[in-house]
């Protein structure tokens, strides 16, 4: 871990309530969490415990019903939709369980997508894309379409897309959940390397204890509450 103690993510007294019909469902209740800059945090918990919801709140994909979500000193929960979109483009890299690559674009153009939101010229964008694909070890498959890539390779492209803008924080939602053990290990090693060598702050949701062991810290979410140890 390359954490330096500076708090990057601060969650204070956050509630998240979903309304299903006439019923309110409390997914997160008075939740508090701090994540240091450069930390690799694993977030574990049973299905329906609110892991992905918490990740969505940190990534600005959803809004808390109450409480403070502060990332890098900015109040994400108070931003307008428009500002939030721009903030995500600058600060957040997402890695999804099912890769979520656009099937009509080849690897390099998938990776280029977030850069379309910047002012970089085409040549500069290509340079960044090449670098990102190099980091994930896919420099030789730049023209390959997702359907021709293995699951592990697709996830590498997904990681390249997440890091190409050099975001402040990487949010990974079960990044190995759809992979076999070998491919999953490779992806975890890659995430570890990004955390160790490049100082990336990573928050990873996972079901898999094996995956969580690669993180520098693990927290457990159950019934909307966070625990430092796995609850019985």
């Amino acid at each position: 871990m390359s954490s330096n103690g500076e708090v990057l993510v601060r969650i204070k007294e956050v509630d998240k309530v979903f309304r299903r019909g006439s019923e309110d469902i409390n997914v997160l209740t008075g939740l508090n969490l701090e994540v240091a800059k450069g930390e690799f945090l694993a977030l574990m918990g049973p299905s329906g415990s609110g892991k992905s919801t918490l990740l969505n709140l940190i990534g600005g994909l959803d809004r808390a019903s109450r409480g403070v979500v502060e990332i890098g000193g900015e109040r994400v929960d108070q931003m307008s939709d428009r500002d939030l979109a721009g903030w995500r483009a600058r600060h957040i890299g997402f890695v999804f369980q099912f890769y979520n690559l656009l099937p009509v674009l080849n690897a390099e153009r998938n990776v280029e997508l977030p850069l379309l939101l910047t002012h970089l010229a085409k040549a500069e964008r290509h340079k960044h894309v090449d670098t990102a694909l190099n980091v994930v070890g896919l420099a030789h498959r730049t023209k390959a379409y997702p359907r021709t890539l293995s699951g592990g390779e697709q996830q590498r492209v997904g990681i390249a897309r997440a890091i190409v803008t050099d975001p402040t924080i990487l949010l990974c939602d079960e990044p190995t959940g759809d992979l076999d053990r070998k491919s999953g290990d490779e992806i975890l090693s890659l995430l570890q390397a990004l955390n160790r060598d490049q100082g990336k702050t990573i928050i990873m949701v996972t079901h898999d204890p094996h995956a969580s062991h690669r993180a520098s810290r693990t927290v457990y979410l159950n019934k909307g509450q966070l625990f430092a140890e796995a609850p019985e």
Binding site: G59, L61, D81, R82, A85, G86, W87, R88, A89, R90, I92, F94, F96, N100, L102, L113, P114, L117, R161
Partner: peptide
């Protein structure tokens, strides 16, 4: 729908 959700997650605004 999911792909459009990904674009928005990457920072594409509603208008874009």
């Amino acid at each position: 729908t999911a792909e459009l959700g990904v674009l928005k997650a990457l920072g594409f605004g509603d208008g874009l």
